[in-house]
Amino acid sequence: QTDVSPEMLIKHPLQNTWTLWFFKIENNRTWEDCQMEIASFNTVEDFWALYNHIEPASRLKVGCDYSMFKQGIKPMWEDEHNCRGGRWLINLNKQQRATELDNFWMEVLLLMIGEAFAEHSDEVCGSVVNVRSKGDKIGVWTADVKKNDSILRIGHVLKERLNIPRLVTIGFQAHKDTMVKSGSTAKNRFTV
């Protein structure tokens, strides 16, 4: 009977269970029906098994999204957990699809599953990567626009982890503002 250390036996549990979604427009379906739930996981091992298995964001067809949200939260404004919140928005230029997009997206996923925002992690709902011809976008969605401290802390950690230069600012927009404005031209409630 050789004793195997528990480290080898037990998968490493995550604080939260997360669900990966894939969005692809299909004209005979409603927008909501085009959001397909791929898989949920709650261990480090299962995250990598899923992540290593799927296409990187940079190779998705233009118009597609990946989203990863806490289980029970749909990747849409209307969801009960999202409707009072907003998102930190990172806009990438066309060249950055090849150089930054996959790195940024992976770092955002690791920040979320690792609870890297400490107590502010409770404000995080999930993140979305939009692959678009006019420039890809990554959004980190939080639950309540009134939680200034948490939102700003999340923005700072995000900027630091993605090595976004100090002089480049990223903005936080309330979903309520984004809904009425077309696209991401909504005003920024916060910037870092």
Binding site: H12, E107, L110, I113, E115, A118
Partner: peptide, 18 residues
């Protein structure tokens, strides 16, 4: 309560473990 936090380096080490 307690929170399960994983550093980036640990998560990256786990990427290719069996």
């Amino acid at each position: 309560g307690t929170r399960i936090i994983y550093e980036r380096t640990f998560l990256m080490q786990m990427r290719n473990s069996p």
